[in-house]
Nucleic acid binder design. Structure first.
Lengths: 250, 250
DNA sequence: GCAAAAGTGTTATCATTACACCCATGG
DNA sequence: CCATGGGTGTAATGATAACACTTTTGC
């Protein structure tokens, strides 16, 4: 390879056979498309996984629910666009947010070709005041959503599957819970998201053996049974100890 | 929720307060950006993970290597655009291809804002005739690539990490090998991609216990040592038996 | 016959599963 | 005192990791 590099670089310097000088002109010749971001915002409340939706404001989707989205502004990074949408709708910033997938079917939008990038966000419902009650913004149980505007049902399902997988590999769940939570709440969260029943003792053993839960010394309050301890997740310790995994499994 | 739906739908039907009738007009008001696809095409040859690159044809990146990309044509689904790029450059179609991530930093392209969607592709090098030797199209060892045009190094590394993770969870590796392969080749592949040494006996045990390798009855040929058996991967059986995994691990 | 890699089993350790009783609280 | 869920341990099973010698081929 070294040899090829040498030769061709020397040749090119003399003749620059077909090199393009004006990058801007090149880019100007590309077709352009509108691009939006859509946020799938998950929350957890009363043992149900929920998602934040508004009514679509398109006549053609009248009555249908829609993800929170907006087009990307000029020169706006898409991650920032997604953060902006979240901020505008929920007042939250610095929220857990991750890019999931771009959806590009040419006919996915009735107004013409629009690409959209799906972002997944997790937030603790109780911390949020939905001060903007525009378009009936509110939480819906994931399991009860029947149809949505555009291809938003498909986008939501893709993000839901993404969440199911991610939560088993990374400590995302804590973003959905209050800062202090009981082990029962944590288990309910996993059971709701994964749609399985888990053994309570094994679940506790698993989490305690990770040694990433900090006992706050506080207890649950206002529960009609023996109160449980409240824990915090030790994000700092997790960052320092996360391990490299090599195991073939399929 | 049922109640709210009923009320607001009724109201809307009467007044349609702010509903947008002309979706096309709405979309026309969105800003538009050029969008490209870039293919990170992995191959495996002589125990090295390789990637297919060309010379950048931009003056500003003279001498630098570039991923294979092209802008998305009007009304072209991005998955199809990526397939098209692959087809045009390698002559292959129906190749393993998966969307990885969209890159959207406003300054990632010197000619102005261009978004790009990274696609990861895996193919068996020996099956390919690179009939188009334009722009010095050829294979490079992943470990030896120092710098690239645009943000392509970052894109490549993102796809490499993606591959390292995916190959442990899904039988992607077989796309990088010839149809018939020895267990040693398979292990070399895993070792090259994951950058680890694996125990030969445990590796064999693991794969045999999956019971997804078909003994072809054939043997290696032209090797300067005892020849190994050749196997095929049983894709059909895999599709029928892949299992649902529930294990919390982070 | 020598070099090089193929092929092959056992043991120890660790993680996962299944499972049942007493305890603390609110009502 | 009753209902509800909190809190706890053990035994069986299955997966993973470590480790060495014999066999087959080309040269």
């Amino acid at each position: 390879m070294g040899k090829e590099v040498g030769i061709s670089t020397d040749d090119d310097r003399q003749f620059t056979p077909g090199l393009i000088k004006d990058a801007r002109k090149l880019v100007d010749s590309y077709p352009r498309v509108p691009i939006t971001v859509d946020c799938v915002i998950f929350g957890f409340e009363e043992n149900d996984l929920k998602i934040l939706l508004i009514r679509s404001d398109l006549e053609i989707f009248k009555g249908e629910w829609s993800l929170l989205g907006d087009f990307a502004a000029d020169n706006e990074d898409l991650d920032e666009a997604a953060q902006r949408v979240l901020q505008q709708r929920t007042g939250m910033h610095d929220v857990y947010l991750e890019q999931v997938k771009i959806f590009s079917k040419p006919d996915r939008h009735p107004g013409g070709r629009v690409l959209t990038v799906a972002y997944c966000s997790l937030l603790s419902i109780e911390h949020i005041k939905l001060d903007k009650i525009e378009n009936e913004l509110h939480w819906h149980k994931v399991t009860e959503i029947k149809s949505m505007a555009f291809d938003h049902k498909e986008i939501m399902m893709e993000c839901y599957r993404w969440l199911q997988k991610r939560i088993q590999e990374h400590p995302l769940g804590f973003n959905l819970l209050p800062k202090k939570f009981s082990l029962r709440e944590l288990q309910n969260l996993y059971e709701a998201i994964l749609n399985v029943k888990l053994d309570r003792r094994n679940f506790r053993k698993k989490f305690f053996s990770m040694d990433l839960l900090i006992d706050t010394g506080e207890m649950e309050d206002d529960v009609p049974h023996r109160p449980g301890k409240l824990y915090e997740f030790d994000f700092a310790k997790y960052e320092n100890t996360k391990r490299r995994w090599t195991g073939i499994d399929f």
